[in-house]
């Protein structure tokens, strides 16, 4: 009497476990994945860090993914922007995961491979939280992923509580250099989102995006910057493949005679940070990011 019942229950559970999941990823692609995915190649720093955090280590990572230290033991598949397709296939993955900011450029070539590819959205802290949940589902670790997510959220909450609430927010300009130009970011990007949460008054707020396909990245002219006269300026310097120092995003601005009259320059509040993790690694290091930014905006804390 009990046996057939148990058998069918086990069968149903088996089907549920091996059920295909249908996802619409950050690039609008419809992807079907057979969960659980056991052999995931991470193609972005975000994917690497979150997978490691929920205890589902990927079997491959981009060469620039060096956090946490345990990730270094994972085989590298080349540059995050141009991962090596042979190396990827050589690891026999059953799923590839990248993120919009990193993988959009190579998504077409990677999507042609016979392995499903998910490109997760990464334009806000909420996207990071959603990715935790998604990865938990994909790797059948929903409970543990939820626990890690709640831990992250509580740490973020604690750090944000340090932002003083009844003072004037400092005007902040954040610049990053990409492709020979300097871009600023609105709150439609991850770093813009964190700047807001860290209590900044982002001078780029409200500026229309330079390219509608990449919302949140804006170009500010020197005139606009001078008019805004930010109190704090932050430059995110790219990490180069060769390790040689990349140019500071302020390089061209510094040539101008208007530079030295900017408040931030006069008060010595121009800071250069690495784009890793602030820009290129939305993920669990959001806490570190906030802990670095808040004292730059509110130094007397």
């Amino acid at each position: 009497m009990k046996k057939p019942f148990l058998l069918s229950a086990a069968l149903l559970a088996g089907i549920a476990l091996a059920a295909p999941i249908q996802i619409r990823d950050g690039l609008g692609r419809s992807v079907t994945v057979n969960a659980p995915a056991n052999r995931i190649v991470a193609l972005s720093l975000t994917a690497t860090e979150i997978l490691v955090d929920i205890g589902a280590n990927p079997i491959g990572r981009p060469s620039s993914a060096t956090h946490p230290a345990t990730a270094l033991r994972i085989p590298d598949v080349g540059s995050a922007y141009r991962p090596d397709t042979e190396k990827i296939l050589g690891l026999r993955p059953d799923l590839l995961i990248g993120s919009v900011g990193t993988t959009a450029a190579s998504a077409r070539q990677l999507g042609a491979l016979p392995i499903p590819l998910i490109v997760t959205p990464d334009s806000s802290l909420k996207d990071v939280y959603d990715t935790y949940t998604l990865f938990g589902k994909l790797t059948n670790r929903e409970a543990y992923a939820k626990a890690r997510l709640e831990f992250l959220q509580s740490r973020v909450k604690r750090v944000i509580a340090k932002v003083p609430s009844n003072v004037v927010k400092p005007k902040v300009l954040a610049l990053l250099a990409a492709g020979g130009q300097s871009f600023s970011t609105t709150d439609e990007t991850y770093i813009g989102d964190l700047l807001e949460k860290a209590g900044a008054n982002n001078v780029a707020k409200g500026t229309p995006s330079a390219d509608p396909r990449q919302p949140g990245f804006v170009v500010l002219s020197l005139e606009q910057i001078v008019a805004a006269n930010p109190d704090v300026m932050i430059g995110f310097r790219a990490v180069t493949a060769t390790g040689a120092p990349a140019p500071s995003p302020f390089e061209r601005l510094e040539q101008s005679s208007a530079w030295k009259n900017l408040n931030a320059v006069k008060n010595n509040r121009v800071h250069i940070l690495s784009s890793d993790p602030f820009v290129t690694a939305p993920g669990p290091r959001a806490v570190e990011t906030l802990e670095t930014l808040i004292p730059l905006f509110y130094p007397k804390q």
Partner: peptide, 9 residues
């Protein structure tokens, strides 16, 4: 230059 995109690659 006109495409003004962070990934003008």
């Amino acid at each position: 230059a006109l495409s003004q995109s962070p990934t003008s690659s």
